[in-house]
């Protein structure tokens, strides 16, 4: 088994630096010392079988999950916790909220606010978190809705949109906040096959624009095309990572080879 625990990239200017991340639910340890480094503009995709810790890792980065050990630095700021007299102390809710706004997240189930229109879904964070003036927020929201091809649906409620359209609004909602890092958590898993393409093409467009992205996906072809680095996770650890071509064509770890064999790539 080849175990590549840490990126060998220069970490001095890393956008995201994860060191020794441990996460457990009661007795169950789901992340067992994960190290990962991302540079600005990188697209990193986490792959692996269900339960390997991909989604949990993603959710730790924006503190939707608490973690018990290790540290996450985003733009040099320690996410979730800091040290006081050698003790690990959770940041205040205000600091955590500010850190969360540094990342954007698109969820598997879209999670659009059902009582708000597509436009209002995008403007809510701009108004209440970024404190933009309403006109400014609307202009920005329209720009991003146009970018995801849904400006014409700006006044539709989520229930009036298809799954693919809802996911695109959710992406616009996250991107409009100008996050340093976008997190995508299996954003196509809940979609009918014919709707997957429209969402993936939006993500591909963002990658081409240089957006830094950390993705979890089961779409191997897409991961291959869009990623700078593929990270294979197995049982709470990073088993192998590297450029897509290397990983997909010359997997070092038998588990990765087995995993790739079981996918449709």
């Amino acid at each position: 088994m080849t175990h590549v625990a840490a990126s060998t990239q220069n970490t001095s200017q890393a956008l995201l630096e994860i060191r020794g991340l441990h996460k457990q639910y009661g007795q169950l340890e789901v992340l067992k010392g994960v190290d990962l480094t991302m540079q600005r503009g990188n697209v990193v995709t986490l792959i692996g079988s269900s339960g390997s810790g991909k989604t949990t890792l993603l959710r730790c980065v924006n503190m939707l999950e608490e973690f018990q050990g290790g540290r996450i630095l985003l733009e040099g700021e320690s996410i979730g916790y800091h040290e006081v007299n050698g003790k690990r102390v959770r940041h205040s809710e205000n600091v955590i909220a500010r850190h969360r706004a540094m990342t954007g997240m698109a969820f598997q189930q879209f999670n659009l606010f059902p009582h708000l229109t597509a436009l209002q879904n995008v403007t809510l964070g701009l108004l209440k978190v970024k404190k933009l003036h309403k006109d400014e927020a609307v202009v920005l929201a329209e720009k991003w809705l146009e970018r995801v091809g849904l400006l014409a649906r700006r006044d539709h409620f989520p229930g009036q949109l298809s799954g693919g359209q809802q996911q695109r609004v959710a992406i616009a909602r996250a991107i409009a906040m100008k996050p340093s890092l976008m997190l995508f958590d299996e954003v196509t898993s809940a979609l009918d096959p014919e709707l997957v393409g429209e969402v993936l093409s939006v993500i591909k467009g963002l990658a081409e624009d240089g957006m830094t992205m950390l993705l979890v996906t089961h779409e191997m072809r897409f991961a291959f095309e869009v990623s700078d680095t593929i990270v294979f996770m197995n049982q709470g650890r990073i088993e192998e990572q590297g450029p897509p071509k290397d990983l997909f064509e010359r997997p070092q770890s038998p588990r990765l080879a087995e995993f790739l064999k079981s996918t449709r790539f």
């Binding site: 924006n62 503190m63 939707l64 809710e93 205000n94 909220a97 500010r98 969360r100 706004a101 990342t103 954007g104 997240m105 969820f107 189930q109 999670n111 659009l112 606010f113 059902p114 809510l124 964070g125 209440k128 978190v129 959710a170 909602r173 996250a174 906040m177």
Partner: peptide, 19 residues
């Protein structure tokens, strides 16, 4: 997931309740 989506865009707990 709605609460999480609110948290993810940086809303605080009271803002999530209110909006």
């Amino acid at each position: 997931g709605l609460r999480e989506a609110g948290l993810a865009i940086g809303l605080g707990e009271w803002q999530i309740k209110a909006y």
